[in-house]
Computed example of a mutant assay.
Amino acid sequence: MALTIQSPGSAAISGPSQYLTFELGGEMFAVGTLNVREIIEYGPITHVPLLPASLRGVINLRGAAVPILDLGVRFRGERTLQTSRTCFVILEVQVGSVRKPVGIIVDAVSEVLEIAEQDIEPSLSVGTEVRADFLLGIGKLDSGFVLLLDIGRVLSLEPIEVLANLESLLPATA
């Protein structure tokens, strides 16, 4: 099966775009709302042996196994600690000809913001632990800056074949 990950935001950014902002490790991040399927409360994660450390396992979301990526491990090598505000952001990525859900663990979801093209600077690798190639750019806000994630690139280095085949790991529930 041919596996490709497409991020609607990975093309050239033009005009105002909407982003879901969230906190992770004291930094503010954002993903394009076109990638976001839903936000759910943090819950039990089923461990799957032999996955990379940043793939924590799967959750059962209405009978479907959804892989959960810990961005804290991916970016800093440290697991994201659960608090009362920790949640899963369920994203959709293109796997072959099908869109598949993939969850990320975040410290807290903030808000949906519209960021104009002129308020987005090219990404820099200074001042953050996130690799510059994981970023679409840095959004300038009245309250500071937000790192705009290219979720397609963040996920592209993971063994996506594993993500594509995880549905068979959880029994379907009615």
Rank of each mutant, 00 (worst) to 15 (best):
G26C: 00
E92Q: 08
V31L: 10
F29I: 05
E111Y: 10
P8V: 11
I104N: 01
E117M: 01
S123I: 13
G103I: 02
Q18T: 06
V102L: 15
S125G: 15
I105V: 15
G57N: 02
Q6H: 12
E121V: 07
L169D: 06
A108F: 11
L81G: 08
E23V: 00
S123V: 15
L149M: 12
L24P: 00
P159H: 04
H47S: 12
C87F: 08
T173W: 09
E158A: 06
P122I: 03
L91S: 01
L81R: 14
I90D: 01
A12L: 08
I59S: 12
I39S: 15
D70T: 10
L124Q: 12
R62G: 09
L61M: 12
I120Q: 02
S125P: 12
A11W: 08
E121R: 07
D150V: 02
S123C: 15
I90E: 04
G15E: 06
K100P: 05
Q118A: 11
R62P: 10
I45W: 05
E167A: 06
V146H: 09
D107Q: 03
R99G: 00
A53Y: 03
G15R: 04
Q118N: 10
P67T: 03
L3I: 15
A53C: 01
R85W: 02
I45P: 03
V95F: 14
I59R: 08
E41H: 12
N165F: 03
V31Y: 10
R153H: 09
V154A: 15
F75V: 06
E114M: 11
G127R: 03
E161V: 02
L147M: 07
G26M: 00
S168M: 04
F22R: 00
L148A: 01
V130D: 01
L136K: 13
N60K: 13
Y19K: 01
V89Y: 03
M1Y: 05
L3A: 09
L71Q: 07
E114L: 15
E92D: 14
A132V: 13
L51A: 10
L55M: 15
G144P: 04
I39D: 08
D150L: 01
P44E: 14
V73I: 13
I59M: 07
R74Q: 11
N165R: 03
G26V: 07
V106G: 09
E23A: 02
E158K: 02
P16H: 08
V98E: 14
V93A: 12
F22C: 00
F88D: 06
D150K: 07
L24H: 01
S168I: 13
L124A: 04
E111W: 13
N35G: 11
F75H: 05
G32V: 11
T86H: 12
D119M: 05
G32N: 14
L69V: 15
P67D: 04
Q82S: 11
V102H: 11
L141G: 06
G26Y: 02
S54R: 14
H47R: 08
G15N: 05
L124H: 04
S54V: 10
V89K: 08
R76I: 04
